[in-house]
Amino acid sequence: KSCSILVTDANFECNEENIMLQAMDNSHIALVSVEIGAPGFTSYRCDRTMPLGVDLTSLTKVLRCAKDENICTLKAADEADVLNLVYDAKSAFFSPFFFAFMWHGRDASSPFPPFFLLCSALLPLFIHLNISLSSQTPITSSWPETKYDTRVTLPSAEFTRIVRDLSQLGEHVRIEVSKEVVRISKLKAKSSAEDEDNDSIPTGVVIEMNQHVSLTFSLKYLVNFSKSGSLSGEVQLLMSNDVPLLVAYDFTQGYIRCYLAPKIGD
């Protein structure tokens, strides 16, 4: 869900150790990188390394059918062009019920199947969903590799609140890191204003730094990144001057990392 805000389609690269996804947004300003290790799943099997090209917008719609208690099984057969999602309602009361359909998620003009609504109404029964896969070129998970001058660790809920609040007030934000303070300042859309409203950061913040850093970013992207906040209690902001920001959410057996190019120049 977090990824689908940034990228519309991407490859899930599957191998014996993990599932990985890496994709840039259309403007090439932001990049999202996700890894979920095999131990993070109740059961995991991958007989052959393969990319699963998935329309994330469609996948998100399908995932909305799931309830919190559902166990979701993802399956893709060898040479198949379909990803199967099976939701198990974990309820002995209902007899197994399979609802199978397939649509071509990559065709944005095709109407959403009307029986999708019926499918939603039938929850929590067993549901069997298919998503058509597209084959794309494999990705390199090592890109980009960067060393950073600063790392700020703070509660992800705080980060979410700060960027959401500031996005009400302006389009851009300046993040400055010195030894003892992180200053996240709203930048007014019009450059006439001289004073900025600073949001001082509360407790639970750890600053590691080699060098003072000051960078300007688009708030719209930071707000989208912060939607991953529910995955981890903490978020790390890794920064160097004139280098893309890395917003990292680490969770058990995996991570979601978002990169954002800074605004540069005067």
Partner: peptide, 14 residues
Amino acid sequence: AKTQPGLKNFFGPK
């Protein structure tokens, strides 16, 4: 004015 370069300007081509 600040400009918004793409990620490839920083990391090089993918």
